[in-house]
């Protein structure tokens, strides 16, 4: 899933037995662009933003599924159960049978774009303002969720 051409500057610590050096190895995904807890950090997270969703949806459910599984893009699967995925995360709700929740496309779009607008204490990352997902990618994800019978 990870594109080997993308450069990975994010390193994970690796403890090597009987060594006085702490080793660092490439992580499976790069986080360099995101703010850290470092005391000199100047980058910040964007304020809550209203999405400008315009119907019709024009999303592609198959593409949406790929995005949901892609750690560099939606990465939804690290937090949500998604049909057909063996080791999903359980941080957010299961997305099985999501269509049955009968959310409008516009609401779902806002949920993925930036849920802090309606739920200020929400934990889910605001994919729109963070610049992780494009308008079309969010549309594809909405189409995918609306296809989960």
């Amino acid at each position: 899933m990870v594109d080997p051409m993308r450069s990975i500057k994010t390193l994970a610590p690796k403890v090597v037995v009987d060594s006085g050096q702490l080793h660092w190895v490439p992580h499976f995904i790069d986080f360099s662009q995101w703010p850290t807890l470092c005391k000199d950090e100047t980058r910040t997270i964007p304020s809550p933003q209203m999405a400008h969703y315009v119907a019709p949806l024009r999303g592609d459910a198959a593409r949406g599924r790929v995005i949901a599984m892609d750690p560099w893009r939606g990465n939804c699967v690290t937090c949500h159960e998604i049909p057909g995925e063996e080791w999903p995360g359980t941080f957010g709700a299961s997305l099985h049978h999501y269509k049955q929740r009968r959310h409008t496309d516009a609401n779902l779009y806002q949920q993925i774009f930036d849920v802090r607008i309606t739920a200020p204490r929400a934990v889910m990352p605001p994919f729109g303002p963070l610049g992780i997902l494009s308008d079309q990618e969010i549309r594809d994800l909405v189409a995918y969720l609306q296809s989960l019978e």
Binding site: T10, A12, F31, S32, W34, T36, C38
Partner: peptide
């Protein structure tokens, strides 16, 4: 901390950093 930092999705800091 460094391992949990990667779970949050930010570059792990070096042990001994002020944070």
């Amino acid at each position: 901390f460094a391992q949990c930092s990667l779970d949050l999705g930010f570059n792990a800091l070096k042990p001994g950093s002020q944070a």
